[in-house]
């Protein structure tokens, strides 16, 4: 297992290296960040001064060597816009995004799982059909469109929930969170639901498919024949069967939640790192984009690793080797 983890980490380093090269040179091709930074009334001398101040006057490969030298020592450069270490900026925004993604994940399971299991047990019932129809809608609606609809309905028309931003944060064990107060939950409810929508549909489908498959399995048929209560059959036998794909997929989808938070954070003005990335792209704040990619890749590698380990715990037949078909 240790060898497995080490090999994974080694590959992760390669992935990070490749991504960083692509992003570093890619962003450089797009445009000159100086034009996004300086005030328009500045003349050419000011442009040059800014380039010197940010090290943009050097050839790109020299900038890259400089970056790599720094990166090896843990310095990913400073934001062009903010002047602060890019990694610090991202890490300061990360708790907000993680909080949002986790609550969305939680919502996906809490809402999606019962609906999906029900739809799988009684596939021909009306309610099951309605659930599946809704899940198709959930798959099909563009996130950004739903986001504003949620704001319009729950905040503007009904006035139940705040439209934008994050609740007051408190520090717990060094991590900022807004989830310890009721007010914090009112703030996170809409953006998390918006982000969760796709995943709710996904969980419904996974749970339904898993339930239907499991219902046909011999051991479930046997359990039924033995006269076990329906609740026990669902709770033990079916759950066991559907939890594996759900844990796997949700683990992998956690990354996509983090990525899609770009959209949700923009709409709900949620102060997370997705919003930071979008602004960095708009302003060509290269150090922030590069650092974001590095942080996210590390994050995903860790998630994948955790998923694999969990997978092996949930399903002892799976061994942690690289040769998975």
């Amino acid at each position: 297992m240790l060898a497995f983890i080490l090999r994974r980490l080694g590959q992760a380093m390669l992935v990070i290296g490749a991504m960083v090269v692509i992003v570093f040179f890619g962003v450089n091709v797009i445009g000159d960040p100086v034009y996004m930074l300086i005030s328009p009334e500045m003349d050419q001398n000011a442009v040059e001064a800014t380039k010197v101040a940010l090290g943009l006057d050097k050839p790109i490969w020299e900038q890259f060597i400089y970056f790599v030298t720094g990166a090896v020592q843990g310095d990913l450069g400073r934001s062009f816009v903010h002047g602060e270490p890019a990694i610090k900026l991202i890490l300061s925004r990360m708790p907000a995004t993680m909080e949002l993604a986790l609550v969305a994940l939680l919502m996906a399971v809490v809402i999606g799982l019962p609906l999906g299991v029900y739809a799988g047990l009684k596939p021909e019932s009306r309610l099951a059909k309605a659930i599946m129809a809704i899940s198709i809608l959930g798959f099909s609606l563009p996130t950004f469109w739903v986001g504003l609809m949620l704001i319009m309905f729950f905040s503007v028309m009904l006035g139940w929930l705040p439209a934008t931003g994050r609740g007051d944060v408190v520090r717990v064990l060094g991590i900022e969170t807004s989830l310890l107060s009721w007010q914090g939950w009112t703030f996170i409810a809409l953006p998390a639901l918006n982000l969760a929508l796709l995943k709710i549909s996904l969980v419904i489908r996974l749970a339904r498919a898993g339930t239907r498959e499991a219902a046909l399995m011999d051991y479930v048929k046997f359990a039924r024949a033995k006269g076990l209560a329906q609740s026990r059959i669902v709770g033990v036998h079916i759950m066991k069967n559907i939890m594996i794909p759900i844990v796997t997929v949700l683990g992998l989808e956690f990354g996509s939640l983090v990525a899609f938070s770009v959209v949700t954070e923009t709409i709900f003005a949620w102060p997370g790192m997705g919003k930071l990335l979008l602004e960095a792209i708009q302003r060509l704040d290269r150090p922030v984009i590069v650092a974001y990619v590095m942080v996210v890749v590390v994050l995903f590698v860790v998630i994948n690793l955790v998923v694999d380990v969990l997978y092996s715990i949930l399903d002892p037949r799976v061994r942690l080797t690289e040769a998975k078909a």
């Binding site: 992935v15 797009i30 996509s256 983090v258 990525a259 959209v263 792209i281």
Partner: peptide, 22 residues
Amino acid sequence: MRIVDLQLSLPAVLIALILVAA
């Protein structure tokens, strides 16, 4: 398959965002 993993390790919306921006 390593390239595939590399590709799948980052979510679509992120890659597309960076690619199209570039």
